[in-house]
Simulated assay, not measured.
Amino acid sequence: MSDAEAPDPLVVRYLDHVRFEKRLAERTCALYQLDLIRLADMAAASKVPLLQVQSGHVRRWVAQMHSAGRSGRGIALILSGWRGFYTWLGREGLVAHNPVVDVRAPRAAKPLPKALGVDEAVQLAEHEEENDAPWLEARDAAMVELLYGCGLRIAELTGLDVVASAEASRAGRGWIDLQNAEVQVQGKGSKRRSVPLGRSALEALAHWLAVRTQLPGMLTQPTPGASGLALALFPGRHGTRLTPRGVAQRLKRRSLLAGLATPVHPHMLRHSFASHVLQSSGDLRAVQELLGHANITTTQVYTRLDFQHLAKAYDAAHPRAKRK
């Protein structure tokens, strides 16, 4: 059926149904109409009436749309419209089986995690914000060092306490062990792991802890028996433990002030940590342990990032890679 021809009467009836009985938005009805025109065109090209369409036809049409470049998400939306049409035909007693019910769109390619380049990550870590209160600058610098230098998840970061305590053990929080240069975190699945603290992270944390003791409401000398805000490694402006949203807002602001082209979110620093360690060491198992991944297949996505980095270097440097 071409656009110039009269719509199929069944399509007209269905569109009236969704417009007047289901009272769907006009925009939705217009999208349904386009999807059903596409269905009718494909059925006509295959010389099969709409009431005789089978699952095999639908799968073939899905393959045609996919090979023509339509995304998996776009095909999924089209199939949803077709599925609703045949569900209605079934209720009307016009078809015995919905040919779209078991057909699924092709899976979309999983996007690579977004990671900063090494220079960008260093630029962010070394940025000093002069317009902030000194305690905010010290706190945010320590957070960046832990996110990028240790690859922590944002929930692991905000759950950190100054010292180990009975409360921390019960709540599943982590803590800083400066003496052994480690951060103890509890990740997904209640699995605890130790992550080494690098020199820059140690320096940033030592500075922050010295500043932190001067804040109102903070203990001068935190002890294992302390509780509440006195234990929170990173407090907010209002005297409560800093939230993941608060961390994300501060990091976005800091990245823009540091001159980065793209606003940075906390998980981007975790991706950057993993990618940069893998680029330098090539040790996938070590990266898995540092990230706290239960399955190494989760970590293997960073090999794609590493290959992407190598491919760019090859394209830029190798004389046989350069194209005219």
Rank of each mutant, 00 (worst) to 15 (best):
A109K: 13
L229M: 06
N131R: 14
T87M: 09
T262E: 13
Q300V: 12
D8R: 04
K47S: 08
E120L: 05
S55V: 06
L147Q: 05
K22Y: 04
K252D: 11
A121H: 08
A68P: 00
L31T: 06
P319T: 10
A44C: 09
G246R: 10
A63W: 01
N131Y: 04
R13E: 08
Q308R: 15
P319D: 13
K312W: 04
A141S: 12
S190P: 06
L94P: 08
Y86R: 08
D132C: 14
R59I: 10
L10C: 06
H97I: 10
A258P: 00
G282K: 15
V287S: 05
P224E: 09
A171H: 05
L260W: 04
G225N: 11
A204R: 00
K322H: 03
E120T: 08
D306Y: 05
V18C: 13
E26K: 15
T299G: 02
R27Q: 12
M1N: 11
V211E: 11
Q184T: 06
D16T: 12
A171S: 10
S71N: 09
A105R: 09
T87S: 14
L257N: 10
G198W: 02
E289Q: 14
R13C: 06
H57F: 00
E182K: 13
A261I: 06
L205K: 04
H265P: 02
P263D: 05
L291V: 04
R285I: 12
L15P: 07
V144Y: 00
L116N: 02
L51V: 10
